[in-house]
Each structure stands twice: as structure tokens, then as C-alpha cells.
Simulated scan of single mutants.
Amino acid sequence: MKILIVCQYFYPERFRVNDISFELVKQGHDVTVLTGLPNYPDGVVKKEYKAIRYEDINGVKVYRSWLIGRGKSNKTLFLNYISFAISSSLRVLKLKGEYDKIIVYQLSPVSMAIPGIIAKKKFKKPLIIYAHDLWPESIVSGGIQTIGIVYKIVKRISKAIYNQSDEIWLSSKMFENYFNDYLKIDKPMKHLPVYAEDLFGTIPPRENDGNTNLVFAGNIGEMQSVETILFAANELKHRNDIFFHIVGDGSSKTKCEDIKRNLELNNVVFYGSHPIERMPYYYAMADAFLITLKNNKSISYTLPNKVQSYMAAGKPILGSINGETAQVIADANCGFTVNAEDYKKLANVIEKFTNINNKDELNLNSKKYYDENYSKEKYFWNLSQILKS
């Protein structure tokens, strides 16, 4: 099958679309990716890619469209979104060949689906939007008010884009509620949660040294509410046996480092961003993983990809989070959650975790739930069935 994947982000940027594209090639599909110039998360286009417009990466044909780097401000981020939508739409017009399916691996922004719509009209083939972020709700986490004109405009654009699809794939079950009840989108929808990379399935258990090490790994943005972890750490800084390890980067990292410094949190360590190949080292440090999101109804529909990685590692998850993720952790019986942004109750849950005796049972439950619901084999079997249909 000849598949055109549209996504603003691709290798060397670290997103699951990379591994999915490479695996589809291994399975015999002809895969082309239309993407932008790498600049995530630091916001600056990498020098070595400024002049590159075509690559072959692990058998995937990669076409890169010009864009403005994300930068550090809302203005440059807006220009980043618009520049990719325009330049990649023009690039579609130059693409030659035939495609059987057009898939938009839709992260933020939803405008990355615009070149997919152009491709649908040009090649006269079905357009699938694989939704991993909800729009317009994603802009709310950036401070945009839902009662303002900007939100209303983005909502209208988002609805028009989703309505151009022939089918929508959902990374989270609760996305269907949002599309049906709020955006009034009437399209065929299929639930297709992602899997974790293979390297996360071989994390060794941590030897008991009397301390409890908690690891957060991933993007440190406004939506992730990592400050909730820091405030919980402040509640527990009298405990000299509980430590917080934060691995990643993002728009809120500086703010979180300032909070650590102002609160004099000696129990928190920031490690910055690292290649995915290095992540098993940090995962092996964990007695349990942490996950947080902002207290926002629509954002709570999201199931962050780190949940699958945490479960694949076979360790408990402690969260200050609502919605889909809280439900998954409860169904798996692999950890404990409290309401989003409730740092005091998160601190209480962490202390509760340090005192329980059945940590091994939580580990097993986490791994078992992953194998039964999110494994790579299950994902690609489901994907193949959907593609055939």
C-alpha cells in the first residue's frame, strides 16, 4: 500500500510517528512523509537541515517543507504553524506519484492537516486524521480564553479541518466525546492508542535502597503542569528518602527551575532532554513514574504517550490528573491518582506509596495491562485491519 503521511514533526524530532513510519516500511508498505525542518523542542531550525528538502530515512521517503522555527514567543510559534501549513501545501502540488491513503498524524497545530486536505483533493484518495491533540482546546492551555474572538476563530477553523476528513483515528477513547458533543463532528471514528518503543520493555527493576525515586519524563509545557510535582515535592521536603527526577525540556522548564530555586527544593533534580536511546537509564531510576496535566476538562480527554512507555517499563504510576489517564490507571490497578493540580493530595499519595508492601503487584499489573492493550504487536495488527478497511 502506498501511504502519504503528513506531520509537521519527524525524525530527528522525537515523536511516535517516526517508529510507526519505519515499521510500516518493514511490513512492505511504500511510505512517504511530508514534514517540516527539525526545530522541536528548542525552536531553532538545525543548521544541517536548513538546505535539506529530501531524505531517505530507513526506507521512508521524507520531503521537508520550509518553515520558521518555533522560537520562544507566541508570535514565532504562530509563524511556525502558518509557515508549515502554507509551504507544505505548495509542496503537495509538486508531489508526483499515486497514494492509496493519506494520513495526517495530527499533533499540534491542527493546521498541519491543511496540506493533507490539499493532497486528498489532488490524489482523490481518502484522508484520515489521526488525532493526538484536541483543537481548539490545545490553545486554552497556552492562555487563550474560550470566550475570546481568537478561540472562536480557531474553533471554526478546527471544525472545518476535521470535517474534511473521511475518517478520524483517536489516540484516546474520550476524544470521541469531544468531537461528537462539542465540535459536532459526524465522521467514522476508530480508537487506535499508540504503543511504546521496544527499548522501554526491557527496563530492569530498581534495587531497594530505602529511598523512593519518582521520575517524570517528557515535555515540560504549560499543559503538563509539572509545577504540581514541584509543589508536592515542597510538601515532602522534610522527607530525606523521597526524590523527584524530572527528565525533559519544554516551554515551562525555566519557570519550573525557578520554582525549585525559590522553594529551595533539594529533593528535585532536572536532567534536561536526552535522546530516546538514553531514556532507559532514567526509567531504571524509578520506583514509580509521575504524570500530571492541567485541570481542564477537554485536556483530560488526552492519554499522553508517556503512559504507554511507563506501563511498558512495568512500574507503578502516580498522577495528579483527570479523565482518560486516571481511568486507565484505575482499570490497570497499577498506581494511584488524585485530581489534576492538587499537589497536596499528590504528596499524600506519594507518602502512601512509600508505605505499601505490594509494589511488585503494581509492577506486574502495569506490564500486564500494557501487553493486553497497548503492545506494538497489537497496535500494528489493529492498524493493518483499519488500513484494509
Results as ranks from 00 to 15, higher is better:
I3Y: 06
F15S: 10
V17Y: 05
F22K: 13
E23G: 06
L24W: 07
V25Y: 13
K26N: 15
Q27H: 13
D30C: 12
T32Q: 06
G36C: 09
Y40A: 02
P41D: 04
D42M: 04
V44G: 00
K47A: 12
R53K: 14
Y63F: 15
G69I: 01
N74P: 13
I82R: 12
S88K: 07
S88T: 12
R91S: 14
K96W: 07
K101Q: 15
V104A: 12
Y105D: 11
P109E: 14
V110Q: 14
S111C: 14
M112E: 15
F123G: 03
K124D: 08
K125S: 12
P126M: 09
I128C: 12
I128Q: 11
I129P: 13
A131Y: 10
D133G: 10
I139L: 13
I139Q: 10
V140C: 04
G142A: 11
G143C: 07
I144A: 05
R156E: 15
W169Q: 09
N180G: 03
D181Y: 08
I185Y: 03
P188N: 11
L192H: 12
P193N: 06
A196D: 04
L199H: 10
F200S: 04
N213M: 12
I220F: 03
E222I: 10
V226T: 05
N234K: 06
G248S: 03
K255G: 02
L263N: 02
N267T: 10
V268F: 00
P275M: 03
I276G: 00
M279V: 09
Y281H: 06
Y282G: 01
Y282W: 04
Y283F: 14
A284N: 08
L290G: 00
N295G: 11
N296C: 08
N296L: 13
K297S: 11
A313V: 01
G323T: 00
Q327T: 14
A330S: 14
A332C: 12
A347N: 05
N348S: 14
I350N: 03
F353Y: 14
T354E: 04
I356S: 01
D360K: 05
L364E: 08
K367E: 05
E372K: 15
S375D: 09
S389Q: 12
